[in-house]
Amino acid sequence: MRSLIEFACAGETLVGTLDAAPGTTGLLIVSGGNEIRAGAHRGMALLAARLAEAGYPVFRFDRRGIGDSSGDNRGFESSAEDIEAAATIFRRNAPHLTRIVGFGNCDAAAALALFHRTAKIDALILANPWAVEEQADDLPPAAAIRAHYAERLRDPRQWLRALRGGVDISKLVRGLLKSSASQSQAPDTLAAQLAEALSTAEIPVLLLLARRDNTAIAFLDAWCGTAFEQARGKAEVEQRDTASHSFASPDDKNWLFQRVLAAL
């Protein structure tokens, strides 16, 4: 059974959706970016219904300033109270729960990594975590640019296109310059904060990465660096050969469902 639930968070009213089921392990879905709780292409609503049918209760919600919830949208870095309030109301409305797994995509994955402790979440499923500082240009992250150029250089048709003048030279130069940059390892960067959070996590962590997604490529580049050395020994990583950031195709959706189901 699916029901709407209103609950308080820092003086505001949040709205969530509970897909009830008898299982003692439940999934808390945190939405990424400015997405409402249904998710891109209704992906999270469909995932929730499918998991509930398999016996696992699922709760998803709009954080402050998003969708049906009141307040100001201050971004994922200010969502600690929202996640904690959602986990609390989930337990209250499904009192048989003994374990909550948190799931988020993109910056919601980053938020869960940073704030899972205060919400007392028991395990994490992090899809395509956002680990990139705010961009001053309209180009993808440096690691994604490098991967993009490596793929194009292996294609003879792209060389022919370049010789015929079918390439934006100014954009090419900007891309090459950015691709040569390395990600900052300063302790105040988002990547460093995620490395610290995941290195000290005392719960199971599953990373799900879309192999050809720019956000996932950038995260994997950071993940292979020295800052994440301790975290690599604790987390499990699975990759899907897709460019879909939200796992939108039917096959991608099924892959995601199977991985989440196994984690539950």
Rank of each mutant, 00 (worst) to 15 (best):
D138V: 11
L139W: 11
L139K: 13
P140N: 13
A143W: 02
A143K: 03
A143Q: 03
A143D: 05
A144M: 05
I145Q: 08
I145H: 06
A147S: 15
A147P: 07
H148Y: 12
Y149R: 12
Y149H: 05
Y149G: 00
Y149N: 05
A150Y: 01
E151D: 08
E151P: 00
E151S: 07
E151M: 02
R152M: 11
R152P: 01
R152V: 02
L153D: 12
R154A: 15
D155F: 04
D155G: 01
P156Y: 09
P156C: 08
Q158I: 04
W159A: 00
W159S: 00
L160Y: 06
L160P: 00
R161W: 06
R161P: 01
R161Y: 03
L163G: 00
L163K: 11
L163N: 01
R164Q: 13
R164D: 09
G165T: 09
G166Q: 14
V167S: 05
V167Y: 10
I169Y: 06
S170I: 09
L172M: 13
L172E: 13
L172H: 12
V173H: 05
V173T: 09
V173S: 04
G175C: 07
L176N: 02
L176I: 02
L176H: 04
K178E: 07
K178V: 03
S180A: 15
S180G: 14
A181Q: 15
A181T: 14
S182Q: 15
Q183G: 11
Q183C: 03
S184E: 10
S184R: 10
Q185V: 14
Q185H: 14
A186H: 11
P187I: 06
P187V: 08
P187H: 08
P187K: 05
D188H: 15
D188I: 05
L190F: 13
L190S: 11
A191K: 05
A192G: 09
Q193D: 11
Q193S: 14
L194I: 10
L194G: 06
A195V: 09
E196G: 04
E196V: 14
E196K: 15
E196Q: 15
A197L: 06
L198S: 01
S199F: 05
T200I: 00
T200E: 06
T200R: 06
A201T: 14
A201L: 07
I203W: 03
I203C: 09
P204R: 03
L206H: 02
L207Q: 00
L208Q: 09
L209I: 06
L209Q: 04
A210Q: 04
A210N: 04
R211D: 12
R211Y: 10
R212F: 14
R212H: 15
N214G: 09
N214W: 15
T215C: 10
T215L: 01
T215M: 02
T215N: 12
A216Q: 06
I217F: 03
A218I: 03
A218S: 13
F219Q: 01
F219M: 00
F219W: 01
L220W: 03
D221S: 13
D221E: 13
A222V: 06
W223M: 01
